[in-house]
């Protein structure tokens, strides 16, 4: 990696950790709650929505937005903490 300092290595490792966590959330909410577990979740309701159906057609999209927000915010903080911004 040539001229890369310790900070750069730490920055990248922290970044990969952040990405991994967000990816797990992404998978759980969309493929997990919206597809794999939709039938058991549909036994429960919020208002007029069967829960699994709600995650599939509404909830997952809200969570996606939240995930990118957390990502952009945390990535900015990582960049300034490790001095690579």
């Amino acid at each position: 990696m040539g001229d890369q300092s310790i900070d750069v290595k730490h920055y990248w490792r922290a970044m990969l950790r952040l990405i991994a966590w967000l990816l797990v959330c992404w998978f759980v909410v969309s493929f997990g709650l919206g597809i794999l577990l939709v039938e058991p979740l549909n036994q429960f309701h919020i208002g007029g929505f069967p829960l699994g159906f709600w995650f599939a057609q509404q909830g997952s999209i809200y969570v996606f937005m939240l995930l990118i927000f957390i990502y952009a915010w945390r990535a900015d903080r990582l960049a300034s903490r490790y001095g690579v911004d």
Binding site: I19, L22, S30, F53, A56, S60, F64, I68
Partner: peptide
């Protein structure tokens, strides 16, 4: 329900794109 493929498929990709 199956319309979900478009709703999640065409928004979830932005998470991948961003990350």
């Amino acid at each position: 329900y199956t319309g979900t493929i478009y709703l999640m498929g065409w928004t979830g990709g932005y998470v991948l794109l961003a990350l």
